[in-house]
Amino acid sequence: MVSETPPKKIRVVDNDVYAISKICGRLLDEVREKNFNSDEIFAIHLALEEAIFNALKHGNKFDPKKTVDIDYLITDDKCDIAVADEGSGFSPDSLPDPRAEENLYKPCGRGVLLMRSYMDVVEFNESGNRVHMVKYKKTNKS
């Protein structure tokens, strides 16, 4: 049953990487309360970590004057999260495939791949500075 509750909002200020675990912890507590299974919780956790870290590092370039906004809605059926930064954005389709032979030994560039692999919906806005992700609860689906 989808509630009519509006999305909750969290703002990450000062580009504080240590805030990520607190935010993830808070959001994941709500996911657990809705009885998502451990695989789904792992998936949401990983995607959220990657999205926030990308927003802080690649989006805001750790500029303390910029913020990251997280909107989320967790219902009995799905976990819906949007992460937006104040960067100029990027084109997700232009990212090199980190699984390609020539990229396997590169130490970065796997975040978006993981988000897409673990979430059911991953879509970026046109300018590429906001990602919207959804994980559906499998156990509630027919």
Partner: peptide, 16 residues
């Protein structure tokens, strides 16, 4: 029990 892609990057640097 949990790691992010940043850890994978660190493992690649260490292995090199």
């Amino acid at each position: 029990q949990f790691l992010s892609s940043a850890v994978l990057g660190m493992l690649i640097r260490i292995s090199k």
